[in-house]
Amino acid sequence: MQKIDFTDAQAALGFVMPAFYNIEQTVYKRRYPSFDYASLIPVITEGSEWARGTLFRSSDAAGKAEFLSGKGFDMPYADVTRDQFLKGFELAGIGYEWSLEELQVAALEGRQLGSEKGEAARAIAEQFLWQTAMTGQTEKGWTGLVNDATVPAALAAATGTGSTTTWSTKTPEQILVDINSAIEGIVTSTQEVEMADTILLPFARFNAIATRPIGNGADKTIATFLRENNTYTSETGRPLTIRTLRALNTAGAGGTARMVAYRRDPEVVRFHLPMPHRFLPPFQKSSMTWEVAGILRTGGTEIRLPKAVSYIDGV
């Protein structure tokens, strides 16, 4: 087998590039369900990858109709209030490198370089985006889906044994009241404009309602009964989505478990990802290493209608 001269840049490039494209294709075919933020938050990838951010404008009607005299001059007028909000985007990255030894050994054995490093970089990127989407990034002053300070937060009703709030001390009926209260709270605070269609729970709380019967001798669990009998389904005829989210285990006040109720719609909440993670072509950064940079740009989670979201702590 002919030995490749890696001191010749063109010869080295001819070996590295086919390996890179094969690895890139393999990596992006894989899925990472444990970091599936897109199923919980609408992901927005529109616009320029290199935009500074996105500008969001909102408006509302103002004014009040009043009784008038037939000859009066005091006509009340309507007006429109306008606000605008800017959400900035930031660059992040995770890549990998090949050493001269790895290149030489692979060339000598007549094989392509393995995809393990690329897969590791991709998995780390997805984990970074998941954390950003759910809890934000302290370095950038960002919050996420489960800890936005503008979202109304309340303590679960103290109706459990000994006036506790935790579901482990409550009856199935009391648990159902807690969940329906979260949905109804959104309806009330938005004057019946918004209604939650999704409930997120810590795994232990979800597991409890998924396995605990609704009553003695009942053939339905709390979760089964809840999906059929809740404020949202009764009003719309559509099923209520109930999902687990490990980020909720200690997201509540004082490190307590938190429940999140919200309408899963980009009008309410969105995750800005103008540039999903991607690899740049490899380049020789030193006499003994080739680097493959991996970059992404995100603006994190933006909750545009905080009153369409509700936090219930201490469940």
Score class of each variant (00 low, 15 high):
D178Y: 06
L129R: 07
G70A: 12
R111Q: 13
R264M: 06
A61G: 14
M288W: 03
K29W: 06
L108Y: 12
K3G: 06
A149I: 02
T166M: 12
Q10S: 09
P213Y: 12
T188P: 02
T54Q: 04
Y311K: 02
F279D: 07
N22Y: 10
T159G: 08
W290I: 15
E302P: 00
Q104W: 02
N230W: 00
P202A: 09
L245A: 03
E139C: 01
P274N: 09
F56R: 05
R122C: 03
E228H: 03
F203R: 04
R258E: 03
V260S: 05
G136K: 11
P306I: 00
I175N: 01
M195I: 14
G185R: 10
H272T: 01
G314K: 06
R246Q: 13
I183Q: 07
R278E: 05
D60E: 13
T166V: 13
S234N: 13
L280V: 11
I312P: 00
F35I: 03
T301G: 00
S189D: 07
G72A: 15
A120S: 15
A153G: 02
E267F: 01
Q25L: 07
G162W: 02
G136N: 11
G110A: 10
A156G: 11
R82Q: 12
A51K: 15
I41Q: 04
A218L: 07
S310P: 00
V27W: 09
G110W: 08
F6M: 12
L113S: 08
A210C: 02
V43C: 02
L201W: 01
I303Q: 00
Y37V: 05
R111I: 12
L100W: 02
I124F: 07
T221A: 03
E192S: 12
V151Q: 01
T159N: 15
F15G: 14
S310F: 01
F271Y: 15
V105G: 04
I209L: 10
V187R: 09
T132D: 02
A253I: 11
K117H: 14
F128R: 15
E46H: 07
G114W: 03
P281I: 12
T7K: 07
R297K: 12
